[in-house]
Amino acid sequence: MTIAAPICSAPSVPEEPLPGTAATAAGYVCLEVPSGWGRDVLDGTALGTELATELSARADAAGVRIQFIRRPGRDVERPTRTVLIARTEPGNTWCERLEITEPAELLDIVPRVVTGPAPLLGAAVTDPIVLVCAHGKRDQCCAVRGRPIAAALAQQFGDTVWECSHTGGHRFAPSMILLPTGYTYGRLDAAHSADAVRAAAAGEVYLPGLRGRSTWAAAGQVAEIAVRELDAAAGIDAAAGIDALTVDEAASPIVRHRDGRAWRVDVELHELPARPASCGAAPKPVRPTVASKVTAL
């Protein structure tokens, strides 16, 4: 596949920061759709207009993100479809896997993802689920850069790895989400992507390429990463403890560690030169959220 100019993932490097660029989602519902993706997963191409519209409304109301998934290399159609559901909240983080026969079954599943503990609709998943964006109809960078990463990871981690639909941030391709936490990565090669997966399996957070945890909005993501990086610079093992930190986003983000420490993180918007958000799109200004000060409380 040939990428049409301009290539959106090239101008974002190196000055555009990654922290604060993950999609915000309290939960994920991932539906296996081997083929037939449209530009948007809920544009009606794959599921029909009526179901897609209703599913979109329920997902928006619940704060849940819908992703299409498929096996690297493209699966064949099966009589059932795998569904992965996950909640990203620290202290209430879980993932389940189930099989459904009709996509309409998702209408009842979506609201249950964020209403309490794991709903026990399927089998508990203990290993990290790896979603690598390969949504070529949305952006060519994701397909060209993402598919080789997904294939390489599948060789190491087997059926925990899926190609997925748009994750947000084409220009950070290849982009990867780890469930159930929603930790999202960008610009990682196959080797570093594998390191991130292994860290997650060990209950740790891999800092290189980290865009943020889906639990938080941009400022909260930036604040959490700033604190982890601060600890790392001080020689404290910031990688350990996926759920070690929580973020209060009410004003200036307050990051709290389960060991009792806390920090206020001041954030501000920067403005960078215009660049395309997608391959072939007109350049637009980019305003990343960055941490300007971290104060121990």
Rank of each mutant, 00 (worst) to 15 (best):
S12P: 02
C95V: 10
L120P: 00
F157D: 04
V247E: 00
R213N: 12
T167R: 00
P253A: 10
V114T: 15
T2Y: 14
G20N: 02
V205A: 03
D75P: 00
S9G: 04
A200H: 06
A223S: 05
T80K: 07
A281I: 00
E96W: 00
A150M: 05
G212M: 02
D243S: 09
V197M: 05
P180R: 06
A152T: 06
V76I: 07
G169D: 01
Y206M: 02
L178W: 01
L178D: 00
G63H: 10
T160M: 07
L179K: 03
E96P: 03
E54N: 15
L179H: 03
A251S: 13
T24C: 08
D75K: 04
E96Q: 06
G63W: 11
T45P: 08
A239T: 15
Y185G: 03
G186A: 11
E268M: 15
V255N: 02
T53G: 05
G146D: 09
M1S: 15
A25D: 01
A154R: 14
A233H: 13
G63Q: 09
S193V: 11
V267R: 03
R171E: 02
A52M: 10
V110Q: 03
L210V: 10
T88R: 10
P19H: 02
V113M: 03
P174C: 07
K293F: 11
C164T: 15
L98A: 00
R261Q: 12
A194R: 08
P285W: 14
L131Y: 06
W162A: 00
A281R: 10
L18H: 02
G209A: 04
N92F: 02
L107G: 04
Y28R: 07
G48C: 11
A277C: 06
R256T: 15
T101R: 04
Y185A: 04
A191G: 07
V76M: 00
I225C: 03
I129E: 07
H192Y: 13
G186S: 12
P285F: 14
A52C: 13
A200L: 06
A277Y: 12
E268V: 14
V113D: 01
W216G: 02
C142E: 04
I129L: 15
R211F: 06
E268I: 12
M1Y: 14
A150D: 05
C141N: 04
H135T: 05
E77M: 05
H270K: 15
L178S: 00
A238K: 04
P17Q: 06
A239C: 11
K137D: 02
A200G: 08
D108W: 01
D231N: 12
A234G: 05
I225W: 01
D259P: 07
L230W: 11
G209M: 02
E229T: 15
G212N: 04
E163D: 06
H192M: 13
T80F: 03
A23G: 00
V161T: 07
T53N: 04
G169A: 01
I254G: 09
R187K: 14
P117W: 05
I109T: 07
T82I: 10
D108V: 09
I7S: 11
E268S: 15
V294G: 01
P285G: 13
T24G: 01
A233M: 13
A134Y: 02
A118V: 05
G280A: 09
R78C: 07
S278G: 12
R211H: 07
S193Q: 09
E268F: 13
R70S: 12
L51F: 13
G209Y: 01
T2P: 14
A200Q: 05
R39G: 01
A46V: 13
A281N: 08
